[in-house]
Amino acid sequence: MAKILVIAEHDGATLNPSTAKCVACAAQIEDADISVAVLGSDTGAVAAQAADLSSVARVVTIDNERNDPAIAAVLAPQIVALANGYSHVFGPSTAFGKDLMPRVAALMGVNQISDIMSVEGSHAFKRPIYAGNAIVTVNAPADHPVVATVRTASYQAAEGGNSAAVESADVDVEMPSHTRFVELQTGSSDRPDLQSAARVVSGGRALASEENFELIYKLADAIGAGVGSSRAAVDAGYVPPETQVGQTGQIIAPDLYIAIGISGAIQHVTGIKDAGTIVAINKDEEAPIFEIADIGLVGDLFAIVPELTEALG
């Protein structure tokens, strides 16, 4: 049997959808016995959401003020203590999981597998390398625990309707005080977040200014979409960094992705390979984005986007 511990990502109130995707990945391992670990200061609400996920056998909580907000150096030793007896420890390949899981792995004395995209066996997994331009099969040693992050864009969230047992755990570990949370600045937007949005509209360098990005916001709002961007648009200051899609931004898999004034550099495209339908609008018919777009339209975005917003609104 594979005893799998999935580390929940949450903000104190709501379980991040990445957790249900990790659970879905874990459930593909034969004979999986899945526990979800919720570390926080008041874990009740989040634990209940985790207990609702299908395939979860139990939810293990650790309540401690020090766990809110989450700091990798503080969480890691607790997770190592919890992971005793488990064959696998999984976290999401989000900023939270990427920060935390290598620290957990190193404390356990093992290497970590990043971005599992498919399960080939209890110790064999596929993952992307070189910005997704190659896929490698990785075999982990069977005599060590597997510590991994799960590429959330490769999995559909586990469904709800379960009612797994919730247990609280006590761990006796030293928690460092050398790392202190100061603040989190989040964009105040009511739009769906990129990871869970069914539709995403992204703008690139071609928007040419922060003001012009209004065109993107209007189209996004007309169809209830999240807003993404290319690195060039972020670097130029048109949009905040958390909107960046791609190798070094967010890897997403919406049903519909509309790329506007984005050339389609490999580093951008790797972030949208799992999108359902990709639409590209670009004035250059040779732009590489058209090589992977399902629907392409050549033309000037400043003429096209308002018309499209009108038609879809």
Binding site: N111, V138, I295
Partner: peptide, 22 residues
């Protein structure tokens, strides 16, 4: 560290070029 063995490499599943609209 306990080694992760890389056993096979393959190109990613490609996306097909789709349609162009006018």
């Amino acid at each position: 560290g306990p080694r992760l063995e890389e056993t096979a490499f393959e190109p990613p599943a490609g996306r097909q070029k789709g349609i162009m609209v006018d």
